[in-house]
Write a protein that binds this DNA or RNA. Structure first.
Lengths: 228, 228
DNA sequence: CACGCTACTCGTACTTAGTACGATGAGTCA
DNA sequence: TGACTCATCGTACTAAGTACGAGTAGCGTG
């Protein structure tokens, strides 16, 4: 029932036109989202795309170019600040969007700012963010600080969120946290144990709540510094 | 003058006792500091240590264990908050120390919080930090937020610092920044170009100045939240 | 309709990396 | 001195990135 046209070559997949650069990059992102970026190899990506490894090289120069392209697509997912409206709302919304995007693509966080040769979406994004900061009318030095501090906070928060032992849903980490804390030597790490027991393992715990707290704290601080 | 004892085997290095687990890990850290963590391979590390690849496996189970050990040594470099004195000073000093350590070991930043099976220094460090937070007497929820926000900021800042195109010394990035900004399409990325010209490329520019600004801003915010 | 061109696709193979397995040989202690 | 131990390493297997060039499908042209 399946060995009719199957004579000489193993299995003429060869579905011409099933691939292009965009499908390669989105396939790679989808793979990395599910498996992580270390397991992302050309060979596995090829399987994932239903194609042989070398076919991929028709669309990208090498693996580095794939990573570059993936990061540029991730930047494209981030909502840019509106071109009008109050600056604080724009910066805030963009920061929240960045955090959500990094939650969807945890592998991306350490790479976002470390790529040389940024893509068009990356540059466009940064330009739009800077435009919003400029609209604030804050002194240039304060803008630079605000930019650095907000981005540092969001990236660092994403880094920590990516390290949480559960996938996404809060409340499910009871097992994971216990696995780490329980085998600790008796009497050592008292504070670690206490914090885990009294806070992390409480019902309704959600690490993510600290995000809004921190973001508003920082924006408040910048406005306060401007008023001074 | 050098082929006296050099007869049958190529070059009996074989200096027994020249190696132990600590030397492997410190050698790996030194290598990663200079070359980055991607170029760190067992073979290159072996060369760096004057030994053959498989010798390393006498001291560590595999490459993952090397990374684990490296990260634990990095945690050990961070000054822990003193066991007495005001909590804010303790948290502040530890945050600054963490940033300095991450500047020495830029490759470590994305790995610090993402290792399963943390080592003794890692656990001890976190315990000491928590002890300092507990001493503040702040409500538990505020402690959790403060912990998350300060660490997010420091890690995120380190991530950005690691991405700066120059090694360490500020002021030297004129060339690098221009290489990125100059080839931009004319008229696009206006704000990016403006920010680079009017701020980044100014003499005396130092990205690191935003660190103290942000850290104090966050600590101020936490104290303000506590007073409320 | 046949032919040849072009754009994809892939087979093969080379290099580098992690590491399993077992041999070798240097000290050491009886 | 001889046997034992254990640090060191040779060899080799698997996996990954990718260079090189061959095969082929489908299209446009005569």
């Amino acid at each position: 029932m399946e060995s009719m046209t199957d004579d000489t070559p193993p299995a003429r997949t060869h579905v011409r036109g099933s691939l292009d650069r965009d499908r390669v990059l989105r396939g790679a992102i989808g793979f990395a989202d599910r498996e992580g970026i270390e397991p992302l190899t050309i060979r596995r990506l090829a399987d994932h795309l239903g194609v042989k490894p070398m076919t991929i090289y028709h669309y990208v120069a090498n693996k580095e170019a794939i990573i570059d392209g993936m990061i540029d697509l991730v930047f494209d997912e981030i909502d840019r600040p509106a071109e009008d409206g109050p600056w604080r709302a724009g910066i805030r919304a963009r920061a929240s969007s960045l955090r959500e995007v990094l939650r969807r693509h945890p592998w991306a966080t350490p790479l976002m700012e470390s790529r040389t040769s940024p893509g068009a979406a990356t540059l466009g994004h940064h330009d739009a963010v800077l435009a919003c900061w400029f609209r604030s009318g804050l002194p240039l030095e304060l803008i630079a600080h605000g930019l650095a501090v907000v981005d540092a906070f969001v990236y660092g928060f994403a880094l920590q969120e990516a390290a949480l032992p559960f996938g996404d849903r809060p409340g499910d980490l009871t097992g994971a946290a216990e696995e780490i804390v329980v085998p600790l030597p008796e009497g050592e790490h008292v504070h670690l144990a206490r914090f885990t027991q009294e806070y992390v393992l409480q019902p309704g715990y959600d690490f993510g709540r600290s995000f809004d707290f921190g973001l508003d704290l920082i924006l408040d601080g910048i406005e306060a510094a401007a008023a001074r």
